[in-house]
Design a protein around this nucleic acid. Structure first.
Lengths: 201, 201
DNA sequence: TCTAATTTCGAAGGAGTGTTCGGTTTTCGG
DNA sequence: CCGAAAACCGAACACTCCTTCGAAATTAGA
């Protein structure tokens, strides 16, 4: 199974990357709507305008799409999170920034996120998903560290820090199930609300 | 597609119901582990000990299993919730009782719950799931009413009640992803923690 | 014990799937 | 404008899967 060739000619390189992203985003939308297994290659061909053969120029296989979707979701988020905690700000400030960036990301990429949630069991179990799994864990560790620092300097108090972390994860991960673009609350407002709930403001 | 005949002889009635429940619970476990589409009928035959033909005595089809799993999950929970709010207790007390019953239920049937989460998109979309959908909505309405009563008599305060409800739904619905039987916290302790977070204690 | 209802079996059918591959069209670089 | 690289097509293939069905085995009740 040779990986489909990325072009060597420079002029086509950008086009290739762009079209690949188009394919991935379209797949994310369809997967979120109908489920991974509920979406056939034929569904993808009609949605992308590419024929089957054309599709396989940009992906290794159907399941490759799943990994690509999760990468596109987690990688930039993790990078942003690292930026935030690298800056030296008070833990409460960092938490607000983290949650805001996180909610905004999750809302903007809610299709990706729904796919991530749907296929979670497969992700946690299979070997090929190690990378995605470790990205998720790294992000959760960053969050936990901020909460720990806040608890240490008494700017935050938790009856059970671990449970508060899990509650926060639950809230944010559940958000894509109900947010609608142009809804009553903006992503930033939702994030503020979550912070207030977790910090007991 | 005639529904597989429930027996008329009384002595076999109980056996039939029991075996059907066995099949459903086994399916819930497998679906939770490998996903609905990742689980083949052949997987179900080896897990249940029944051959393909035997299986189809107890179910109408593979997707019938999904509905049965969700019914088994939501029906008793909804009934219990109605009992709790029927009794005349303070809103805060009712909320604690509701969340405790809910978390206990979710933890006890975490396989069912994981399936429910995984197949959520299909559930919300397709017509045949109307019943399950309305059960879910009814339960959420009960929760919202309790929060509203608490807000009305000033025993609870929310910056945004709707957001607090959604946050609570997120926390509890996410719980099956991380709880392990015999873990550090009991279901009741988790429920108490969630209540404290939502009520800002 | 006899029999009719019930349970179970397992091979066969039929539809749908993801992927491959040879060939054609389009595109870029010189 | 030419030639090679890249993009794309779509029919064919190999598979797996869910479901059906006629027959065999088991059971309960008279």
């Amino acid at each position: 199974m040779p990986l489909p060739s990325p072009p060597t000619r420079p002029a086509l390189r950008a086009r290739y990357e762009g079209r690949r992203r188009e394919v991935i985003d379209t797949a994310a939308r369809l997967f979120a709507e109908r489920g991974y297994d509920g979406t056939s290659i034929s569904d993808l061909t009609s949605a992308t305008g590419l024929a089957a053969g054309g599709l396989y120029h940009y992906i290794e296989g159907k399941d490759d799409l799943l990994i690509a979707i999760c990468d596109e979701l987690l990688e930039p988020l993790l990078e942003r999170a690292r930026e935030i905690v690298a800056a030296e700000a008070a833990p409460v400030t960092q938490l607000r920034e983290l949650v805001t960036a996180w909610v905004e990301h999750v809302v903007a990429h809610r299709h990706h996120m729904l796919v991530f949630t749907q296929e979670r069991q497969a992700i946690e179990r299979q070997a090929r998903w190690r990378r995605v799994r470790s990205q998720r864990k790294a992000f959760e560790k960053i969050l936990d560290d901020v909460l720990a620092r806040g608890e240490a300097d008494r700017s935050m108090t938790f009856a059970d820090r671990r449970l508060s972390l899990l509650a926060l994860l639950g809230m944010v991960n559940y958000t894509p199930q109900w947010v609608r673009p142009g809804g009553r609350l903006s992503a930033a407002e939702i994030a503020d609300g979550y912070c207030a709930i977790v910090l007991g403001a």
